[in-house]
Design a protein around this nucleic acid. Structure first.
Length: 268
DNA sequence: GTGTCATGCGTAT
DNA sequence: TACGCCTGACACG
């Protein structure tokens, strides 16, 4: 489930196990052998997340850059380590813990300048709490005439949102996904930013995306929500809106599905 | 068992 | 706009 909250959670959890240790780095699959050898037995200095990107910086100044894409997955393993799967792109192991990476879109070695180049292409990340995040986002969206539902996936406008968050955040903000981004009011963009900050922080802690207010479905806490009760719009095509009972609709924007409630999201 | 789809994104056309 | 890449879950027969 690789939207931004997942990468920050991975950075946090992996850091407690791997940072400050000299690590064994291997690529059983063989597609990252040279990169793994370049950091093998080096001490890991930091693991940092920005948007959907992860950066492992080693003491020799080399950085492993990971982007999970649609399919990438991390597994956390402890001694005795199980046999790695045949498609394990990267294994990072301390004496006691191992992180197993399979299926990433990106897993490559970067020099410090290359890291800066990747970061320059990313907008503000709600989980990094930049003080001017809302205004950076407003300035990026203000230049776009595409639907706001499309602009939210542009990682230069705001880094870390994926297809689930774009449907859910637009629902929470009450915004019509098809309104041009440059027509959305600055108040509504500020609202989208604030919702992104609170939503991703909460989901980073729990490890899952839950946007529904538990009271709306008659529950007393987030943790009591079952799988089908966690979201307002995403993949709920044809079902009644949890707030107003109108029918949730779906359409494609740039060949990716978006879901919305035509009544709750009439604002533009 | 096979086919389809998916929480992503870069490149080519 | 279309395709390629990478993997796993699920529907269907």
């Amino acid at each position: 489930m690789p939207e931004g909250h997942v990468l920050h959670r991975e950075a946090r959890l992996q850091s407690t196990k791997l940072v400050d240790h000299p690590l064994r780095a291997e690529s059983p699959q063989g597609r990252f052998t040279t990169g793994a050898e370049a950091v093998d037995r080096q001490r890991l200095i930091t693991i940092e997340a920005r948007g959907k990107h992860l950066f492992y910086r080693f003491e020799n100044d080399l950085t492993i850059h990971v982007h999970l894409g649609l399919f990438g997955k991390f597994r956390h393993q402890q001694l005795p380590f199980p046999e790695p799967s045949a498609n394990a792109r990267l294994l990072l192991s301390s004496d006691t813990d191992r992180v197993h990476l399979a299926g990433p879109t990106t897993c490559r070695l970067l020099e410090p300048d290359d890291v800066d180049n990747v970061l320059r292409r990313l907008g503000p990340d709600p989980l990094c709490r930049p003080v001017d995040g809302a205004s950076q986002m407003a300035s990026a969206l203000g230049r776009r005439t595409v639907p706001v539902g499309r602009a939210l996936l542009d990682q230069r406008a705001i880094a870390g949102l994926g297809n689930i968050y774009r449907s859910e955040l637009l629902f929470l903000a009450g915004l019509d996904p098809f309104v041009p981004a440059n027509v959305v009011s600055s108040d509504d963009i500020a609202k989208l930013w604030d919702l992104s900050v609170s939503q991703l922080r909460s989901d980073e802690r729990s490890g899952r995306i839950v946007t529904v207010d538990p009271a709306v479905v008659g529950k007393t806490s987030r943790s009591r929500l079952v799988r089908d009760e966690r979201l307002y719009a995403y993949k709920r095509h044809g079902e009644p809106c949890r707030v107003c009972s109108d029918t949730i609709r779906t359409a494609k924007i740039d060949d990716r599905n978006i879901w919305w409630c035509p009544s709750c999201q009439a604002k533009n």
